[in-house]
C-alpha cells in the first residue's frame, strides 16, 4: 500500500467504493473491506493492549497499598482511579473496537452521545445530588448520618457486660 493510499484510507476510512452496496458486505468478496483492515490490527498489537489493560487494573490497587501517600485524602485516590479507568476505556474503544482506524463518522456518533451523557449526569446534581441539603425534619430523623457510624464504632469498642467481667 503506497503512502498515498494509506493517506486515503486514513482520511476516508474503510471506504465502500462507488457502486458497492454496503449490503454486499454480508456476501464476502468485499475487497474494499479487506484492504481497509489489512493495515491495522495484528495479534501482537492486541496482546500489547491486553497487557496494558492488566497493568492498569493492578494500578487501581495501588491506592490500597501502604506505598500510596494520600491515604488520608480519598479524593486523590478516586481521581487516580478514574484516570486509570478512562485510560482503560480509551484503549478498549480505540483498539478493540477499531475506532482508531475508523473514518470520521466515528465523531458523528460518539461526540454527541458523550456530550448527552455528561449533560445527563450534570442535570442530576440539583435534584438528586443536593437532595440532603434541605430535608424535612421527619426524614432527617430517620436517615443515617455520620454520627451513627461513630456510634457503631464506639459500640464495637465497648464490650458486653459479661465479656468485661470475664476479662
Amino acid at each position: 500500500m503506497s503512502d498515498q493510499e494509506v493517506f486515503k484510507e486514513r482520511a476516508h476510512g474503510p471506504v465502500t467504493r462507488p457502486g458497492d452496496l454496503p449490503a454486499h458486505d454480508a456476501h464476502g468478496h468485499d475487497h474494499a473491506h479487506d484492504d481497509a483492515h489489512a493495515g491495522h490490527g495484528g495479534i501482537g498489537k492486541y496482546l500489547l493492549v491486553f497487557l496494558a489493560l492488566c497493568a492498569l487494573t493492578t494500578m487501581s490497587f495501588l491506592t490500597y497499598s501502604p506505598l500510596w501517600p494520600w491515604r488520608s485524602e480519598p479524593q486523590v485516590g478516586w481521581a487516580f482511579m478514574m484516570a486509570v479507568s478512562c485510560t482503560k476505556a480509551m484503549l478498549v474503544v480505540l483498539f478493540f473496537m477499531h475506532v482508531f482506524w475508523e473514518a470520521n463518522w466515528k465523531y458523528v456518533l460518539t461526540i454527541p452521545a458523550a456530550m448527552m451523557a455528561i449533560f445527563l449526569a450534570i442535570m442530576l446534581v440539583p435534584d438528586v445530588g443536593m437532595r440532603n441539603r434541605m430535608v424535612s425534619q421527619e426524614r432527617a430523623l430517620h436517615m443515617a448520618r455520620g454520627s451513627d457510624v461513630k456510634l457503631l464504632e464506639h459500640a464495637a469498642e465497648a464490650k458486653l457486660p459479661k465479656e468485661q467481667a470475664g476479662h
Partner: peptide
C-alpha cells in the same frame, strides 16, 4: 443503465 451509488456513511448497515 448504471447509477453511481454513494453511501451516506462509509460503513456497512449492520
Amino acid at each position: 443503465v448504471t447509477l453511481q451509488y454513494q453511501p451516506g456513511l462509509p460503513l456497512s448497515r449492520g
